[in-house]
Design a protein around this nucleic acid. Structure first.
Lengths: 144, 144
DNA sequence: CTAGGTCCTAGAGTCGGCTCTAGGGCAAGC
DNA sequence: GCTTGCCCTAGAGCCGACTCTAGGACCTAG
């Protein structure tokens, strides 16, 4: 059963999290199952690794630590909380979708800006302060 | 030419930024053109609004303040910096694309998790405290 | 037996990005 | 003249998420 037991250093290496961060996450209650100790030292199993992997993905998608803590608490409470967990994950999914949409719209705006710059470089590259053509400017400086 | 001159309060209302944040941004050098004063009070024009709109989009897509400051400085320097600005924006575009990819992959992972939960709810869902059937633990090792 | 490496706890420090407070000015309306 | 409301500056405070330090234990190799 208990093959692949890892020290905190090994887990750090494997997850990309720092040793500090692992202890910090534990202190913050992010672990679904309590981290075991052997002579005071933390010992991690494969389940812990999988859980940490999920945590890093949740973090990477912007879930704040308190939300992950909440999720971990639900997991600890057992299968009666499946509905709650499902709801939590689905809510987070929606936030991710919203984030992606926001990023896409920003990207579109920047694309327009880029196109404008490229056009300026192509056409008016010789004239520093182009006077008339399209009334769109950098940030229409003398507009007032 | 000088229609629509706005006070800081009006700009705050219009941009969704707080008055504090507007002053803070100015102090941080985020404005491409210096904010004008009338009897000590800040006065904003349409160009400023457009610029702030761009800033909020850049921020929303994760560009840090120092990068925006850098961009603003390039704009201030005039049309000789078009290439540099273009490069900056393109780099940021790439970071946005990377962010979207990351979010998508997180979303996919969570979708798998959600499907798993829904399956669990469907099969073993009639009994709140299901005792034995699948000894499936929360952090399942098998998949990843 | 000492040096090196890894581990521990408790708590302080850092950083980015705001957010707010203190203390005050100025103009308009009652 | 006094209150109201918006503005100002300088600087402190806050929050999230780490990141690091101090001070110490244990184990192994030389």
């Amino acid at each position: 059963m208990a093959r692949t037991l890892l020290t905190i250093g090994q887990v750090a290496e494997r997850t990309g999290l720092s040793v500090h961060t692992l202890r910090f996450y534990e202190k913050e209650g992010l672990f679904a199952t309590p981290v075991r100790r052997v002579r005071g030292n933390r010992v991690y199993g494969e389940g812990d690794l999988a859980w940490l992997h999920l945590c890093t993905r949740l973090r990477a998608s912007g879930m704040p630590l308190p939300a992950i803590r909440e999720y971990a608490a639900l997991v600890r409470e057992g299968p009666t909380t499946l509905h709650a967990r499902l709801a939590l994950l689905k809510t987070h999914q929606q936030r991710i979708a919203a984030q992606i949409e926001e990023l896409s719209s920003c990207s579109a705006l920047i694309s327009r800006k880029v196109a404008l710059y490229e056009q300026q470089l192509a056409t008016g590259g010789n004239d520093p302060l182009l006077p008339s053509p399209p009334p769109h400017q950098e940030n229409p400086s003398p507009s007032e």
